[in-house]
Structures are given as C-alpha cells and as structure tokens.
Computed example of a mutant assay.
Amino acid sequence: MPEQDDWEREFDHRWANSAEHKEPSARARMLAARWKENPPEPAPFRADPDPVPRRSSWVSTVVVLGCVAAVIVLLGYAQMRSPY
C-alpha cells in the first residue's frame, strides 16, 4: 500500500493545477525575450504569403476531360491487344 501512496503523491494533478503561479514554457519565455527587443510585425490570420493567379475554369475542365479521354483510349487499346 505505501507504493500506491507514493504513486498518488507523485502524480497529484489536482495539487499541481491548483498552484497560484504557473511558470511559462521554455518556448514562451524564449519568444517573450525575443519579442521584447524586436516585436513581430502584425499579420492577418492565415494570410497567403503571395497571391496565386487563378487559372481559368475552362483550363481545368479541358485538363480533366483530356485525362479521361486518354484513359478511355488506353483501356480500349489494351482490350484490342489482349488475346482473350
């Protein structure tokens, strides 16, 4: 039974969570020190770094239909070549 008491004392999360002062993580301390002298520039949430020009919907349609036609032709050719 004393082993279980040591185990409960070692992993007492309620006691740890009830602490008045919680120390920030190492990464938080590093960023705070870095940003103290050189604050980051404001950036919009999930902003694209460079806008990508949009392709025409016709180009996408032609590419898809071309791939489908190529598959149909390849399957037809393979069926013609098979001896069965």
Rank of each mutant, 00 (worst) to 15 (best):
E37K: 06
D50N: 15
M30F: 06
E10W: 02
P83I: 04
D5W: 09
M80I: 08
R29K: 12
I72W: 05
P42W: 00
E3D: 07
L74C: 08
F45N: 14
Q79C: 07
V63E: 04
Y77E: 03
T61Q: 13
A26C: 06
C67Y: 06
S57T: 12
R27G: 05
A32F: 00
L65W: 01
V52Q: 09
N17M: 03
S60E: 09
I72R: 01
A78C: 04
T61M: 13
P49T: 14
P83R: 08
A70Y: 05
P39W: 04
Y84A: 01
E41I: 12
V64S: 01
A70G: 10
P39K: 02
K22E: 06
A78L: 03
S25T: 14
S18L: 04
D50C: 09
A19Y: 00
G76W: 11
E41N: 13
P42Y: 00
Q79P: 01
A69Y: 08
P53Q: 03
P83G: 08
Q79M: 09
S18E: 10
D6N: 14
P39L: 07
E23G: 04
N17F: 05
D50A: 12
E37D: 13
R81T: 07
V68R: 02
N38W: 05
S25H: 05
P42H: 00
A19R: 09
W35F: 15
A47I: 13
V62Q: 00
L75A: 15
R34G: 00
G66D: 00
A47G: 13
D6G: 13
A33S: 04
R29Y: 01
W7Q: 09
V64W: 00
V62A: 06
V68F: 11
E41V: 12
I72M: 07
P51W: 04
A43K: 12
A26F: 11
R54N: 07
P42A: 01
Q79L: 08
M1E: 11
F11K: 05
P51N: 07
P39I: 02
E37N: 12
P44S: 02
V63K: 01
M80V: 09
D50E: 15
Y77H: 01
Q4E: 08
A78K: 03
L74M: 10
P51C: 02
E41A: 15
P24Q: 06
A16M: 13
P83D: 07
D48F: 12
V62K: 02
V52T: 11
Q4C: 06
D48A: 13
Q79T: 11
L31T: 06
S18H: 08
P44C: 00
V63C: 02
N38K: 14
N38S: 14
M1I: 07
I72G: 03
A28D: 13
A28W: 03
A33L: 04
S60R: 11
Q79G: 11
W35T: 10
L31M: 14
P40D: 02
D5Q: 11
M30D: 08
W35V: 12
V73L: 07
A43R: 13
P24N: 04
A78V: 03
N17K: 05
K22Q: 12
A47V: 14
K36D: 05
E23P: 06
P44W: 01
A69E: 02
W15A: 14
E20Y: 01
P24R: 06
K22N: 07
W35I: 07
P40V: 07
P49Y: 14
G76D: 10
M1S: 08
R9T: 09
W15V: 10
V73N: 00
M80R: 14
